Simulated scan of single mutants.
Amino acid sequence: MYEFIKGTIEYVCPEYIVIENGGIGYQISTPNPFTFSPLFGQTTKIYTYQHVREDIIALYGFQLREERTLFKKLLGVSGIGPKGALAILAYGEPTQVIQAIENENEAFLIKFPGVGKKTARQMILDLKGKLQDIVPDYFPNLFNEGNIGNQENDTESLDEAILALKALGYSDKEIKKVSKELQQEKLTTDQYIKLALKKLMK
């Protein structure tokens, strides 16, 4: 098990990032890869979780240990795999997720891709009262929101955001519902994703 990897961010795409350490490029899936865009080319520490199945070995990465802890707890719920757990963390509002579990708010939880009523109920049964070590204060806005994209890059940023939403499991129909509103904004890819997720969860 890798505790963390410290290296240079070499590549960011809608599904993963690549961090170079000792001449090796590690492909790491993260909740929202574009949160790492401001760190491109810089030395960064990423807390990792290695997921092993018969057909795959994958690395998942997080900016904070507490974020990884929540990911692992979500994986412990029957019906939630790594992709579903990443989609929940990509929402960027762990406080609301934890409150939904504590308040048994199934209607909120089923808005995440791949989470139906049965899985939402299982999340509540398995995690209610067991998330005390996940302190919301550990999830600040890690990068300031002032990096507004310029006009010539808006279309590219929006396209990348849409690809990232698809990678998280959102359907074309769901994305289409919010795309018109997104087109009215001039944002970075990361900001488009965050805005889209907030609208999708309403």
Rank of each mutant, 00 (worst) to 15 (best):
T48I: 11
Y49N: 03
L74K: 13
T44A: 03
F71V: 11
L64H: 13
P82S: 13
S78K: 04
V77Q: 03
E67T: 12
Q63W: 12
R68G: 15
G92P: 05
R53K: 05
Y60I: 15
G41P: 14
A90W: 01
Q63R: 08
V77G: 06
Y91L: 03
K45Q: 13
I56A: 13
L89V: 12
Q50P: 00
L59E: 05
T43V: 07
P82W: 01
I46W: 04
G84R: 01
F62S: 06
A85Y: 07
Q50C: 04
I46T: 07
Q42D: 03
F40Q: 11
P82C: 12
Y49R: 02
Y91W: 13
L70T: 10
P82A: 11
D55T: 12
K45D: 08
K72V: 10
E93L: 15
K83R: 15
G79E: 00
L75E: 00
K45N: 10
G76Y: 07
Y47C: 01
G79P: 02
I46P: 12
V52D: 00
A58E: 08
L70M: 09
T69S: 05
Y49V: 02
F40G: 06
L75N: 00
L75Y: 04
K73G: 09
K83M: 10
T48W: 13
I46R: 05
T48S: 03
L86E: 13
S78G: 11
G61E: 02
K83F: 14
T43S: 09
E66C: 02
R53N: 08
G84L: 11
Q50S: 08
Y49P: 01
Y49S: 10
K72P: 00
R53Q: 07
R53H: 04
R68F: 06
L86Q: 03
Y47E: 09
G41T: 08
P82I: 10
R53M: 06
P82N: 08
F71A: 11
K72C: 14
A87C: 02
E54S: 08
E93I: 14
T69V: 02
H51Y: 15
Y49C: 09
A58W: 07
K72Y: 03
Y60T: 07
I57L: 12
Q42W: 09
F62R: 03
G61P: 02
S78F: 02
L86K: 04
F71H: 09
G81N: 01
E54F: 14
G41L: 01
H51M: 01
Y47H: 07
Y49M: 01
H51I: 00
T44V: 14
